[in-house]
Design a protein around this nucleic acid. Sequence first.
DNA 1: ACCTGAACACCGTTCAAGT
DNA 2: ACCTGAACACCGTTCAAGT
Lengths: 203, 203
Amino acid sequence: MSSATTPYHHGDLKNALIEAAVTLIEEEGVDAVSVRAVAKRVGVSPGAPFRHFESRTALLTAVAEVAMARLAQAIDQALAQAGGQSALTQYMALGRAFLDWAFANPTHFRVISSRALIDFDGSGLAAANHRIRDRMRALLQQALDDGEIRNVTVDDAMLATRALAYGLARMYVDGQMQSWDVEPAQGLQMAHRLLDEQVMRLA
Amino acid sequence: MSSATTPYHHGDLKNALIEAAVTLIEEEGVDAVSVRAVAKRVGVSPGAPFRHFESRTALLTAVAEVAMARLAQAIDQALAQAGGQSALTQYMALGRAFLDWAFANPTHFRVISSRALIDFDGSGLAAANHRIRDRMRALLQQALDDGEIRNVTVDDAMLATRALAYGLARMYVDGQMQSWDVEPAQGLQMAHRLLDEQVMRLA
DNA sequence: ACCTGAACACCGTTCAAGT
DNA sequence: ACCTGAACACCGTTCAAGT
């Protein structure tokens, strides 16, 4: 356990691996996150991670849980700041928080969005997503009750805004903005505007 | 050149490789498309494809061009059928053709949408996308001139509908429909409805 | 001109052996 | 209980050698 020597037993390899993977993913993208590269970064043999994660998918799922927690926190924060304002305003704040986070963390966004890279349903991810969805639904229901929106069902409105927000975020992370005449640097601002406009057209 | 023996020179290896990759991608997804697997399927050595494609990316780009041509054809057909109807109706038909194609060809859709797997700008893909975009713009301009839509710029309307359509299609191919309370089997119908509604709210 | 087959540096994953 | 290191079956890519 001395700090100078590297002990045979790492101590907290599991968390060290997750941390290394989170960093590697931010720096070099998902493709760079091989089990071997993560092991090397932590200073451990190629097979060692498999004592803690049964597969690369399981490791990436752990990374996705960290990413999702950060997204949830960003949304919580935005909603706390919008507290006291109208339900529809809070709903737009939630949408903007989602866009901000996705544009700022493209690779993490990509990881939590995929179903091929991670085990979404067999992890805490589905539940975390559920909580966000429930918040959206509650705000929309409130907006409907308050007469802020009309001529839509809560479910339709929710799916329409979520699909638009997801589409805008993905167009950005997939590098498609330029193909549609939007400068990538203006992407976020544009996404904010289009989402706001769509929500306001529900009125 | 006899049909019974396999000659040393394939003859049309390039096209055979593209064809095999297109099929493999439909049957087993993008990840299954390794250069080696495609070579094996065509009955050729692992290094042979590199005589015709400088990298896996180049091979996938060729596949993407086939896929994009099919999408363009589907759109052409839909517009031909909607000929004579109002500009906004034609615009919706184009959107539905995009959704139909993406839902029916999830893996091809994924390939043409990515910028990591293929070389979008250094191929015919950018130009093909350009043509679709120009069609959309022209129809929206016409709808605006005819008073079918109001209170929007052509560019905003185009990006909003494209982002919504892309978001809906991606939610489907990324397996996210269920996480948002939509049965995958109902996804396409739902996507149609939400896109139609969004376009009609531009009126 | 085009293809083979060995080679190199990578993967994910497994597992006996070491500590 | 946890990690090493060799091994296996894969990759993409290169290149001398064969046809």
